[in-house]
Design a protein around this nucleic acid. Structure first.
Lengths: 221, 221
DNA sequence: ACCTGAACACCGTTCAAGT
DNA sequence: ACCTGAACACCGTTCAAGT
């Protein structure tokens, strides 16, 4: 019973039934084996789920568009965050497993290395690069972890939320109702908005402001 | 058996043992009752946990510092996000319950209303106000949900992470190792950095730039 | 009306026993 | 060496039976 076969089946199973319904018995059954056999390869359920997380993170590079070497750090950082987001959207039930710990498996480390490398190459100080990665990564996780389970179809859910907010008592929730009609239709748009905020804010932390948000000021000085 | 007593005990129990170990039997035992009695008041475990989330969100206003009416939208938005973050840090095991759904209970709605109200009062268009709230809320959740369980003591964990990143092979993870030494000591600092990025980025979305990031430009025009 | 013990069909994990 | 059935101590949920 190769370890990889167990992990592959575990990812499939979590994708299908979610971490709540995932059980050692179901996994053993799917592998035509028994639970005790699983315990010969893994210390327990938690260890398997840690490997599931890292396996999914291994799919992130597949979502990277081809980016020219001349691209700005902004384009590269946005592309890497969106690649992570798309990967997590394909495995919505796996995102729950990001609870209570920062993934530290080999694929997670590779992603961290790539993102911090983008910042350093962009001219940021190491301290800023590390903080920037943390901020962006947590934003992506926070967005992904609250996505409704896949079954409900993304756009319908968005519509449901808008309708729900619109239906509230305007006397009690005036700001919520006012803004509800303007909620973005697309989850991708909504995600991209916050991501762009972070990137725009980062431009102010470059040691020697070049292009970007300071263009106007630079020209006038 | 009043409903409030059940919720209070449920919050206590989740705080102590986490959602994983939380069980209807343990809750019934703590209330000197039986599980079947709990089912007379709630449809099931999930419904109780939804109420636990909303109860905890009710504590957010306690973490609001007194803010003068003359404060800027930046100060007010930062204060509200930090109030949510502090609340969640006091209930680290509850944060896992934010999985897979956006809280829509009365306390959650009150928080949403307050934050969007801050943005509208600050002069933002309703569309931007809604997107800004979504971005900030997801950032806070994303940060809070990956916090290690309380037992391990916050600062030690941070130290552990720094040591771990520093100990990696510099040939394989050059950017990670380089930046590791500069990781913030305080989780609050790390949280505040990303939050400030979002707020800075938002200033660019004001319809008529007033004070803030455009000060220099405004003075020169 | 309100509560309960016992039951059902499940868990994660372990271990003696088989090949 | 590798695998397994059966066991242990748990789950969430239900329901007949008690007061």
């Amino acid at each position: 019973m190769p370890v990889d076969r167990i992990i592959d089946a575990a990812v499939e199973l979590v994708d299908e039934v979610g971490p709540g319904e995932f059980s050692m018995r179901l996994l053993a059954q799917r592998l035509q084996s028994s639970t005790a056999t699983l315990y010969r390869h893994f210390a327990g359920k938690d260890e398997i789920l840690v490997q599931v997380v890292d396996h999914v993170l291994g799919e992130v590079p597949r979502h990277f568009p081809d980016i020219a070497d001349t691209s700005s750090w902004q384009e590269r950082l946005v592309a890497s965050a969106e690649a992570l987001f798309r990967t997590l959207r394909e495995h919505p039930k796996v995102v729950s497993l990001f609870d209570n710990h920062i993934p530290l498996g080999p694929r997670a480390l590779a992603g961290r290395e790539a993102a911090i490398g983008i910042m350093l190459a962009g001219g940021f100080a190491p301290e800023v690069a590390a903080r920037a990665y943390t901020a962006v990564a947590h934003y992506v996780i926070g967005f992904a972890i609250q996505l409704p389970p896949a079954g409900a179809a993304g756009r319908e859910e968005t519509q449901d939320h808008r309708d729900f907010y619109s239906s509230l008592d305007p006397a009690r929730y005036p700001a919520t109702v006012t803004s509800a009609a303007f909620l973005p239709t697309s989850l991708d748009d909504e995600f991209h908005f916050g991501l762009q905020l972070l990137v725009d804010g980062l431009a102010n932390h470059l040691p020697h402001p070049t292009a970007s948000a300071f263009e106007g000021v630079a020209e006038l000085e």
